[in-house]
Design a protein around this nucleic acid. Sequence first.
DNA 1: TACTGATATACGGATATACGCATATCTAAA
DNA 2: TTTAGATATGCGTATATCCGTATATCAGTA
Lengths: 118, 118
Amino acid sequence: MRVTRDEVFRLHAQICKALADPNRLLLIVQLRHRARTVGELSDAIGASQPLTSRHLGVLREKGIVKAERDGSFVRYSLADRRVLTAIDLLLDVLAGQLERQGARGSAVRRLRPAFRSA
Amino acid sequence: MRVTRDEVFRLHAQICKALADPNRLLLIVQLRHRARTVGELSDAIGASQPLTSRHLGVLREKGIVKAERDGSFVRYSLADRRVLTAIDLLLDVLAGQLERQGARGSAVRRLRPAFRSA
DNA sequence: TACTGATATACGGATATACGCATATCTAAA
DNA sequence: TTTAGATATGCGTATATCCGTATATCAGTA
C-alpha cells in the first residue's frame, strides 16, 4: 500500500488526536503497569461503561492499546510503550509551564518526573 | 493558583490537542532546526497566511512555540524541544504500524528514525 | 500623514467530536 | 435455550474544530 507524505502527516495527527482527550489520557495512565478490563477502567476513571468502551475503541483503532478476550471480559493493555513515554514528555512540558506560572496543589507536585517514575 | 487533578488532565489533553492537526505538525517540523517567519512557514506548508497564523496562534497559546517580533516580521521558534521528541516518538509508533502493514513509498522510508535524525 | 508589506482577527459554514441514554452483542453457566 | 454479566454500538444533541474570505492591526518608510 502506497503512502504519501500528506497521508503520513494525517495519520500522525490521528495518533495525536487519539491522545487529545482527558478521559483517554486517564485510560492510558491506568494501563501503565498492568492490563485491565473495561469494567476496571470504567471504575478507575469514573466514567460510564459505554463511554469507556468507546474511548477504548478509539485508542484501539489507532493502535495505541490492544484488546484481548478473557472469558466474558476484555482485557486492555498498551500496544506500544513509546506512547507512554511521549505523553510523559508532554506532561513534563506542562509541569514546566505550570511551575513557571507558580501553580500549586498536590496534583501539580505529582507531575514532577522524579515523583512520577517512582 | 491551585490546580486540581482533573485540571491537569484537561491541560495535558489540551497540549495533545494542539499537536493533533496535520498542518500544525507540519509547522512544528519546520521549526526543528531554526526559527521562521509566518510567511516562510506559510510557504513551507503550503497553507494560506491567515490559516498559518491561526495555527501558530494555537501552538503559541499552548506554549509550544514562541513568537518574537523582528521589524514587521514575527519569527516563530520552538518553546520546548521536548515536544519535538514526543512527536518523533509518536512518529516512530506510526512507522512501526505502517511497516507491519507493509506500507511503501518514500514518505514512509523517511519515517525511519535513523533517516530522520540525519 | 499616507502607503505598503507582514501578521492577526472576525465571521460563517461544513464537518468532527464527546456525551448520555437505550439497546444490541457476546460469553459463560444454568 | 434461557438468563445474567460484560462489553459494544446506535442515535440524537451540544459543542468544538477547521477552513476560506474579508478585514483589521502593526511596523517601517516615503
